[in-house]
Amino acid sequence: MSEIPFNPIEASNRSLHEDGDEARLAGSTGTSDQLLMERIRSNDQMAMAEVFDRYGGLVYSVALRVLKEPDQAEDVMQDIFFQLWKGTGSYREGRGSLGAWLAVVARNRAIDSLRRKKPTDSVEDVVLPAKTDLASESERNLMIEKVRVVMKGLTPEQQSLVELAFFEGMSHSEIAAKTGDALGTVKTRIRTALMTLRKGVQG
């Protein structure tokens, strides 16, 4: 799939460096993700270590939230970063921020592990929004805090749906069976919850 010129997060909430000037980003957050990825493609182990340091906690936390088993979560994390190192099915610039890509891939791989099945999706299939800069630790923490605030503002029903769909990897039919709601209702509510989250972060 080609690049998606769409950013669900309003400019005011994006990175201060979301203007495409990666060099400026490097000035405040260290080396930019783009430069690090270029170095990784040249087998620069130091660059890979820097990416690991930057996003390892995020990837591990997402995987652990899904799997609830530290060893399994670490396996998922190690495999994701090793894939990044090998460049297989890898992240490509222009498809969004590396941090967001890793967070989604971590969730998907953890769900695959939970279902004890081979990864069905190539990580390349993950369509990312436009840049949502998470390279800066301070901005990443700011974004995390904002998401949590918005998530707490969701109704208990919406929170439950997001939990079941995202972190437990249940299909909408499984959720419908669990909640007793109609399939269409489940789909709409999941969609509504995510739209609320998006708008809440943008706002």
Binding site: M1, S2, I4, P5, F6, N7, P8, I9, A49, F52, D53, G56, G57, L58, Y60, S61, V62, L64, R65, P70, D71, E74, M77, Q78, G96, A100, W101, A103, V104, A106, R107, V126, V127, L128, P129, A130, T132, M143, I144, V147, R148, M151, V162, F166, F167, L194, M195, L197, R198, V201
Partner: peptide, 28 residues
Amino acid sequence: RAELAAATGDLALVALSAEQQPLPTGAR
């Protein structure tokens, strides 16, 4: 395609809601 990207962006936000955990000892 744009709408799917937006939906994926929503999932990235949800992922950020996961409680941040320290890496296991020696993982790095």
